[in-house]
Design a binder for these strands. Structure first.
Ligand SMILES: [Zn+2]
Ligand SMILES: [Zn+2]
Lengths: 246, 246
DNA sequence: TATTCCGATAGTGAC
DNA sequence: GTCACTATCGGAATGAG
């Protein structure tokens, strides 16, 4: 078994990832990413043999029921993160502040998939948008979560009507043309996802580094970005700078 | 005074390079290169203020007398190296073996200049062709001595007749079209030296690495070349491999 | 192509 | 795009007053 199939080992025997395991049932494992790229970085790993080797941009395409099931686990995982951050005293707002909590859950925690996963078993990332982690070591790490290479989960929702395969592209049922200013996407239109490997490799290796908080750009200066992310982190979270783990 | 003019300090006061100084008189300093790129790597530094800031490919062009003077120091310096290598017991042949000694002096020790010197004061390199040194750290180091970027001293000899400036190119009075198989070049023809900075930069940064002993090529694999040069060194010289200083 | 430091880029191997 | 390791490649500073 190569590194590409490490999650299969976890599916076959959750005891193999006890130190990372947060939740398991008949449908999924929820684990901590072994090399978290942000303050909290969890993974949902569906167990179904019929799904686990399907490309994440295609696996939900004709199975609204599967999408809906995973959607519930996404919400569950975001709640796990919120509970953990509150318990750790890392948030600057109180649990009773439902507006701030809602905003954080639905904006600052993102769920999604990589357009080209390196690990072959289907997995959905649930990750805070600080990207403040010693494991975030190079541009591709960062750009794999902050460019179109990362496709948010809600954009994978299949349409109500059964559309054609659309030339093999994954499709996107999203609100990207929604002019509503609501808190997060609710409507759907059909949009293709880029699946060309060369274009996607170019996206993560060549896209200029851009701060997810403020939009500041850093070209290819990764170390500069890291320092900036630390500054953003200490502003956003309830920690002393010396406690940080860049 | 910037790093580019460090040799001027030596010219003004040879005491500033006592640890490197091998010889001095009214015309030149002969010193060890402070960062030797081979087993022996010496420098001849002419002291004349009229010459020291002239480009090495041009400085001999209309001054056969100056060339002849430096030529004597080149021979002197090669003899210094031979004496030192014999004294150190590094050679596999005896001082009485005049054929081997002659061959080593005239083939394995080369004199020449860099087409684009980084240090502005005129200096002529006298260097053994093993390139076995911990100070040889990257491709440009190696290629600056093993490509056309390095112009051998004998090719700088001005012609007997006073030729025109030839469009600002340095010229080369060499035996490159000499069909004689003699031990080393003795005749002269006039050939231009490449002086275009971009082309020369390309030569040292892009030329594939090639062993000076056997012609083996290593593309850009510098570490591979280094290991090979160590193998060649222990074959060529009287040393145990563990004594080496790669 | 002076050195040195730092950092960005690239290839490999992993069973 | 898994990691970790090695190595290649690339820019910047360097001083003086
Ligand atoms: Zn920012
Ligand atoms: Zn060789």
């Amino acid at each position: 078994m190569s590194f590409r199939h490490v999650f299969q080992k976890y599916i076959d025997n959750a005891d193999a990832c006890l130190d990372l395991l947060l939740y398991k049932d008949e449908n999924v494992l929820i684990i901590k990413d072994g090399f978290p790229k942000a303050l909290r970085h969890y993974l949902i790993i569906p167990k179904s043999p019929d799904k686990t080797q399907i490309h994440p941009l295609l696996v939900f395409q004709k199975d609204p029921q599967f999408y809906k099931m995973i959607e519930e686990y996404v919400t569950k995982t975001k709640k796990l993160i919120m509970d953990d951050l509150f318990a750790a005293g890392l948030l600057k707002f109180d649990k009773t502040d439902t507006l701030a909590t809602h905003e954080f859950m639905n904006r600052f925690i993102k769920a999604g998939v990589h357009s080209i996963p390196s690990l072959s078993n289907l997995h959905i990332h649930i990750i805070t948008q600080d990207f403040y982690s010693s494991r975030l070591k190079h541009k591709k790490h960062y750009n794999s979560f902050t460019t179109e290479f990362f496709v948010e989960f809600y954009r994978l929702e299949p349409p109500q009507t059964d559309l054609e395969d659309q030339m093999g592209y994954g499709y996107d049922s999203s609100s990207s043309q929604n002019t509503d200013d609501g808190p997060y996407p609710t409507q759907s239109i059909s949009v293709r996802h880029e699946m060309d490997p060369l274009k996607l490799q170019n996206v993560i290796s060549k896209s200029p580094l851009k701060c997810t908080y403020c939009g500041a750009t850093f070209a290819n200066r990764f170390v500069h970005l890291k320092k900036h992310l630390q500054e953003e982190f200490v502003k956003k979270f309830a920690v002393a700078p010396e406690d940080t783990n860049s």
